[in-house]
Nucleic acid binder design. Structure first.
Lengths: 330, 330
DNA sequence: CTGAAAGCGCTAACAC
DNA sequence: GTGTTAGCGCTTTCAG
């Protein structure tokens, strides 16, 4: 078998030219005389030469790699973001270096700092507050945040969480519900925005909101929280969950408890993950355009890399998806 | 603000030592005299120095990065594999470079070849046949395959697909079903193994198997296939789907068609993805230990990287998970 | 324990 | 068009 892979010098020697010529040829930097081109092609083919991207990156200072940190790869919302980002990256010949923060806030900073050294730019989804994320500015790499940041001069992409939550509340009010509960996830920075949106809507008709916390953004957490919410002192007629996964778990547990959805309680989520459609009853939710978010975040980053920075926040418009988990209040 | 990040030379100058000393210090290669150590620590802190992993990799030839190619990041089975692999990688201070093949077979080879140059080793999930995958041997990097390969001398991890399918068939036979259909995905290499497992079981009782194809391993594809399977000339009493996603889509469409699961037809999947549990009826399936597969694949690779190669195939044992989508035949 | 020097594989001026 | 030469930031002998 083979030894070490051939270097640019091996090719130069085999083709009888200089390394500079080989380098230029590999980069398609200019045109060559027919005989040289032929020899080059032959030598490269013969040796199976492929230029070493590491050495190249060291000189150019560019890796053609984008770092993407997500909070949890198990959450379909984030995989959709990745899907979108990846599509745009591939199109521009960039590779994604994916880091799953895995909902462990402690390691976030070191992981991102290490990542930053190996990539040309970063797309970051983080639970850090603006204050806690200031160090990102010192990374000296273009960054796009997957949530609004009012204080940091970093471009970002997200949805209007207040509006999304407002829409769900309005939908439930229209169905005649009056006792509405919110099952949130306090660790998420956008949780407050969603609570605000719901409150804003309920305020208009003089209703108050019962707020619960699921402690995790997962189906399992939704399951656990269900009895606490439904069998507590103030049984709600409708529950707005922080995200679809919590809602899915909630609905499953409700069924176990003999509580029917939507007859006994209406349930909603947020995100419109693929499986919300295949649950039964199919989940009423708000589409947040996860894939498009990933696409736009990547596009912004690539633009920045190309010298067209953009420090604004882009907000996608949420869209209410009414399915079968919500119904008129009895 | 700062300009370019400081290099090892800056630190050496600031600390009044040589670059070699700084290098050794950064790598914890040896012990140092107290004054030198103090100066180094101070200089590094002062300048905010972090060694450049690219330059380091170029010399050592190691990147502490593992490449992982998966067929589709939208499939929860694969995200679980990633989760497991990532856990082990982190534990050994490796980073994952994830590539989503996105079910596009054409680009597979170039993507993997490019990936191979940037990592120390690869975990590959591919639809290529052994024959088509021979070039992987020339990559000169340790590889672990996420499926059995009998011909290639490459270590692999997988489950016993024949047994998994056999178990599902046996379960359905025990429930009294006689007209059993298989809704597969012909592109997958393991599809044949699963068909074989089902056939083997049905042969024992002299039954034949109706085989259909969903054309994609997705819920959407399962939806589309449902009417073809259920409203064709040979309506089955039970359907074994290639994976959970297809089964989920199938069940949704069945409901639309007024076909009740499990009363009118029993349905099973394979994989035990998280959402199979939250569907209703909850899906009967076979657990393939996706996370453990990812963990073991990574462990094998890291062992290989540490000089303990292992060319064997590790097979996880499938486990039948009976839930509510299967019931006795009326 | 510490330092000087020789590169890793490649690119980027600048000559020819 | 093609070659020469200087490094990129770091590790690694090998002296001292």
């Amino acid at each position: 078998m083979k030894k070490l892979s051939p270097t640019i010098r091996d090719v130069a020697a085999a083709a009888g030219v200089s390394v500079a010529t080989v380098s230029k040829y590999m980069n398609g930097a200019q045109r060559f005389s027919a005989p040289v081109e032929a020899k080059l092609k032959a030598a490269i083919e013969e040796l199976g030469y492929r230029s070493n991207p590491l050495a190249r990156s060291m000189i150019t200072g560019r890796t053609r790699t984008i770092g993407l940190t997500i909070l949890d790869i198990s959450n379909p919302h984030f995989t959709n973001v990745v899907k979108g980002a990846n599509r745009i990256a591939l199109r521009h010949d960039y590779t994604l270096l994916l880091v799953d923060i895995d909902e462990t806030q402690a390691r976030e900073r070191p992981l991102i700092e290490a990542l930053a050294q190996r990539v040309d730019g970063l797309i970051v989804s983080s639970r850090l507050s603006d204050e806690e994320a200031k160090w990102m500015l010192d990374l000296d790499k273009p960054i796009v945040l997957l949530r609004r940041s009012d204080e940091l001069p970093i471009p970002s992409v997200g949805i209007d969480n207040r509006l999304a939550a407002y829409m769900l509340a309005r939908h439930l009010l229209n169905l005649g519900h009056r006792q509405i509960a919110y099952l949130g996830f306090g660790q998420a920075r956008i949780n407050d925005e969603r609570i605000r949106g719901v409150r804003e809507c309920l305020d208009e008709v003089g209703l108050t909101l019962e707020v619960h916390d699921a402690h995790a953004p997962t189906a399992r957490a939704g399951e656990h929280a269900c009895s606490r919410v439904m069998l507590g002192p103030h049984r709600p007629q409708a529950v707005i969950c922080y995200n679809d996964l919590i809602a899915l778990g909630f609905m499953k547990e409700a069924a176990s408890l003999g509580i029917r959805v939507p007859q006994d309680v209406s349930v909603t989520g947020v995100d419109n993950v693929p499986y919300s459609e295949y649950a039964s009853p199919a989940l009423t939710t708000v589409d947040v355009q996860s894939e498009k978010m990933g696409e736009l975040a990547m596009q912004k980053l690539i633009d920045a890399l190309a010298g067209h920075p953009d420090t604004g926040h882009s907000m996608f418009e949420p869209r209410l998806i009414v399915r079968d988990s919500t119904a008129p209040c009895r």
